[in-house]
Each structure stands twice: as structure tokens, then as C-alpha cells.
Design a protein around this nucleic acid. Structure first.
Lengths: 326, 326
DNA sequence: TTGTAGGCGTTATCAC
DNA sequence: GTGATAACGCCTACAA
């Protein structure tokens, strides 16, 4: 291109970047030819030179879960607006895959990472390494127990209290809770909120009404059966997640059909789909995944722009609202 | 790193790449230090040098649609296994956004692109330019009318015939069809299949039983009302997509509740969710999005490895199976 | 077996 | 206003 115009590469480069000391005439000639040749600058070279890729990574369990899809959208929208790319990786609940993704992303030189760790992830040394390499990491939705990390989550503690209070206001006395894996802090918070909600309202906490699943349909069905075989079965069930609640609904409908109508359910996530189906659950806690993504993007860009040593740990939790379907 | 070991960079490079002519002892020393320093090669530099990024792009309307999520998974799994990255872009049905994504991806030097064009995309010159720049493009799910392009789609023509035949076998005589935008070839194929299905079974095609929507809930409801106000309303409706079918179900249930039980519906997509809800539709045509993604990845890698001039247009359509829920 | 030199595309810097 | 040159990190002939 430089040759064709009999100009030096540096002049061409300056012309394309609207450098002030380049004549308008020259700029025009260069830009015209660039368009004609369908010239596109090689970002790989630019990134290489700038030691920065303007790329952020996001790692999440699965795109089939709309919570994460929405978080991606918030993250992507904010990041795009600021000129950053986003690359997505799914860990599919495998720690091994997660590690692969992290090192893949590190080698493609992402400037920052947003991650919701896999089911299996308890040790986060692979992520600590990233941070040591100067790449900021923000955990979202699921955060490790490790206290000293950036995170942004939903305030599921308050949400659980709200859910329990709502069920009590509808006259329920025996409210069960099916939780997710207990080593997630998000499960723990739900649980404590559930318990505190009962206690605040003057009820006793009954541990036999609480069970835990690994989120698989089978283990959820097992938990439901256990609860339903209780001498005094629950009249309402709080579920860790909407996807779990669907399994709970199905199990009750098929195996305990006589009680199906009287048992009320609340989940987390407020799947849009519930607006469309015939017998939706009673309610669901609406989280703000899009906003989580957006704020995470905003925060991570701030961290990137700060010299590494001045970075302050960023921790946020966003409120949920109870969405009633019936 | 080279300095620490008092070796030259090339020795270090060779050691890391298991070059045969490097002594085992040296290799060990180098690798050990690399691990210790948490050294990760800079892909940006490698890509820059190799004039290849080992990155594929995939552009689709929305990740909220599980069809596309599954296609991404197929694409990503195959590509990862072959050492390629995948970057995802959502056009959100906007041509403008799509063009942005294409040029973004071009400048980040993707080696190939898989795309399902936006609602608004009729002119594909932005994609032709990519191909002219030597980057292969495969269209999936939605392909432009343009005949001379690589594509991989579901065989919705056969699928529609199957669906109609199934409804006829259940005794329906008046089968309506609510289609998607008529300028998509995928809509056209569904339509022709619907019509041919009727004719092959000895029924007359009645154009008053066919309507078209832009996929929004509102326009779908409008189409349903029109059909239901028909002097002889349909007893079964074939719907362009499961998401549309949900809107159809809801509209019939709320506005024509007396007929809700007698009208049978078939959609396309076979959303996994239908397994879990209380009153699922009669059936849905199960496409193979994961396989579409996989095959697309396979095909695009083949195209990438072939010299540009020898590339042959690749066109595939995969069969669908009818999945019955009731 | 190891070292040296050159080049990939772009831009910042400095000289003209 | 324009041109030459170095530098970014890595790889690979080729030289030693």
C-alpha cells in the first residue's frame, strides 16, 4: 500500500490514524486507497506492539443457563461500548476444562477475567496465578470461600428471607428448602437466609426440612422423595434455582400428584419462560444477571486501568426482587 | 528467562518446543524455570508472526435461543479439539451490529466464520468481502437467498412434510401454519414442505390457513387471532419455532380457552424444557444444532487448510426427527 | 548442541 | 509534512 502511493509506511500509518501533522490531501489519498483495497489493520500486530489486547475473558458453567447468558450480554454490551472484545468459555462444571480455559485465555493475553467457577472448583490457585501475572479476576454468581477476592453476586441472603416471609404470609408453616452444593458460598447464604427468615418470623428451624442436591435431575428427585416421605411433609418448597424447581415440579406432579396442587414453590432466577407456561410456580427470586455483567465489566476496566499495586478488592452484591407468577 | 539460565532466546524457544536437537538436560532446566516463572508464551506474538490466529468466529442472533447455544457448543467442542479458539458475537437481529461484528472479527484476524444472519440481513456484501479477503464463511440455520455460498442447515422441508403427515394421521383435516419471515429461505422451505405434505396426502392447500409473523409475541398473537376467527378454524397448528409455539399456546389458552384442549401444536426445536412442563405441546421437530456446529467446524477447517482457489462450495442439510411429547 | 540474525505489521520517535 | 528506524516477542534458517 505504501509502495503504490510512493509514501513511507509511517506516513501511511499516520494518515490512517488522523495524525495532525499529515496533509489533508495525503490523508485523502491514503484513506481512499485503503477503502479500495479493503484494508483492515492487523490487530494481532497492534496487540503485539501495545502489549494489550483489549480482550476480556468470561468463563461460566454453561450457556444453556439463561442466568449466564444474560450476564454475558451485560458484560459484552458494556465492554463493546468501551472498545473491548469478550471471549467466552464454558467450563461445563469441570475443573480441568476450567484450568485449560484459564491458560488458553492467559496465553491469548486477555486483559481481565470474569469467572463463575465450576462445581468442582475449590482450589483457585490457577486463578491466583493469573492475578499474580497482573490480570485482574472478578468472580461472579459463584465465588470461592477465599475472602480476599473481587466478586459480584446476588444478595441471596436477603432474597431467601423475602421468599420465606412471603410463603409464611401465605399461611405456610412447613417450608422446605432444597439447596445446591454446600461448599458454594451462594448455597450457604441461601441457607442462612432461609433459616434466619424462619427465625425472624418466630418459627423454629427444622433441619429435616432441608436437603441438598448436586443440581442433577436425579439428585433433585431424590431430595423431593425424601421430603415427601417426611411424617409431616412440607406445604411449600424453596428451591436453589429455577431449573431445579422444574425438576421438583415434575417429580411432585408425577409421583405425588394428589398433593401437586397444594404445594407451593419458589425458585431463583425468574426464568422468562414462566410467563408462558400453563401452571407456573408460585414465584421466583429475580436476580439481575445483566446488571451483574455490566458492573463486572465496569469494575474490571477500572482495575485494568489502575496500576497493579493500587488495586483495591472490589466486592458487590446486588438485591433481588420476588417475582410472583400466579 | 534466557538471561537467568545464561542461554540464548533461541535455545530457550527450542527447548520449550521440544526441538530434537536440544539436550535433555537443557530442556529440563528451561522447562523447570518456565513453570516456576509461570511463563506463558504470548500468542499475540505467535499469531502475528504466523499470520494465522487459530481463531474462528461465530455470529448468531441470540444466545438466549438454545438452538444457537447448542450450535455454539458443537462448534466450540470440535474447534477446541483441533486447537482453535472460538469467539462468539450476537447480532441481536441487527444488521448494523452484524456488520460491526464482522469487521471486528476481520480485524482480529479470524481464520474462518460461521454465521446465522440477522433478521434484517438481505444484502450480504459485508460477508462477501470477508470471503474475498480469503476468510471462509459458512452460513448456518439461516442462509441468504444467494445460491453460491457454503451452508449447513436443517432439512426443514422434509421435517414439515413429516409434521403434516403426523397431524393428518391423528385425524386433523384443517392444519394451519404460522411461518416466520418470508424472506428467509428456511421459512420458504418450511412452507413448501407444509404445502407438499398436504398435497401428497390428498388434501387441498388452503392459503387462508397460513400466516406469517416477525417472531415477536405480539405479531404471533395477532396471527393466532386471525386463524381462530376463521369461519372454520384449524384443529392443529404447525409453528415456525418452539418459542413461537409457546406464544401460540399462551394466546389460545387465555383467549380461546374453550378450544385450548382440542388444538394440537407442533413446533421446531424440541426445547428440552418441554420434557419438564405440565402440558407440553403435541410434538416438535428435533433439529440437530450440536451436529450442525460440529460439522460446520469440520468443514471450515477443511476450507482453511485448502488453498483459496481450490475451495469448493459446501452445502449440507441435516435431517430432523419428530419428537412427541404427549 | 547452541548462538545469531532477520522478519512478521504497526506505531512512536526522531531526523529531515 | 514526510521519511527512516527501532522496538514489540517469538520462531526459524543458518552459522558456529
Amino acid at each position: 500500500m505504501a509502495k503504490q502511493l510512493r509514501l513511507s509506511v509511517s506516513t501511511v500509518s499516520k494518515a490512517l490514524n488522523d495524525h495532525p501533522r499529515i496533509g489533508e490531501v495525503t490523508k485523502d489519498r491514503v484513506k481512499k486507497l485503503a477503502k479500495q483495497l479493503n484494508y483492515v489493520p492487523n490487530q494481532a500486530a497492534i496487540h503485539f506492539k501495545q502489549r494489550k489486547t483489549f480482550t476480556l475473558g468470561i468463563i461460566l458453567p454453561s450457556l444453556m443457563d439463561h442466568f449466564y447468558t444474560l450476564a454475558v450480554n451485560g458484560f459484552d454490551d458494556y465492554a463493546s461500548a468501551k472498545g473491548y472484545h469478550v471471549i467466552i468459555g464454558q467450563n461445563h462444571e469441570s475443573l480441568q476444562r476450567e484450568k485449560q480455559l484459564v491458560s488458553l485465555m492467559q496465553s491469548s493475553r486477555i486483559d481481565g477475567l470474569l469467572i463463575s467457577v465450576s462445581k468442582e472448583t475449590q482450589d483457585i490457585s490457577h486463578l491466583r496465578k493469573l492475578e499474580q501475572a497482573g490480570i485482574p479476576v472478578i468472580y461472579f454468581a459463584r465465588k470461592p470461600i477465599d475472602i480476599n477476592c473481587n466478586y459480584i453476586v446476588s444478595n441471596v441472603y436477603d432474597a431467601s428471607i423475602k421468599a420465606v416471609s412471603f410463603l409464611l404470609s401465605r399461611g405456610h408453616k412447613r417450608i422446605a428448602f432444597i439447596n445446591g452444593p454446600s461448599y458454594w458460598s451462594t448455597s450457604k447464604q441461601r441457607f442462612v437466609g432461609y433459616r434466619d427468615g424462619l427465625i425472624q418470623n418466630g418459627l423454629k428451624f427444622d433441619p429435616t426440612l432441608v436437603d441438598e442436591t448436586n443440581l442433577s435431575t436425579e439428585s433433585t428427585h431424590k431430595a423431593v422423595r425424601k421430603l415427601m416421605q417426611h411424617p409431616a411433609p412440607p406445604t411449600a418448597i424453596l428451591c436453589f434455582k429455577d431449573y431445579m424447581m422444574l425438576d421438583v415440579m415434575k417429580c411432585i406432579r408425577t409421583e405425588y400428584s394428589s398433593m401437586a396442587k397444594s404445594i407451593e414453590l419458589i425458585g431463583y432466577g425468574a426464568l422468562p419462560l414462566f410467563e408462558k407456561i400453563e401452571n407456573p410456580p408460585l414465584a421466583s427470586m429475580q436476580e439481575q444477571p445483566y446488571k451483574i455483567g455490566q458492573q463486572a465489566a465496569e469494575t474490571i476496566l477500572k482495575l485494568i486501568d489502575h496500576p497493579e499495586k493500587e488495586r483495591i478488592v472490589q466486592q458487590t452484591s446486588l438485591p433481588c426482587t420476588l417475582k410472583i407468577f400466579q
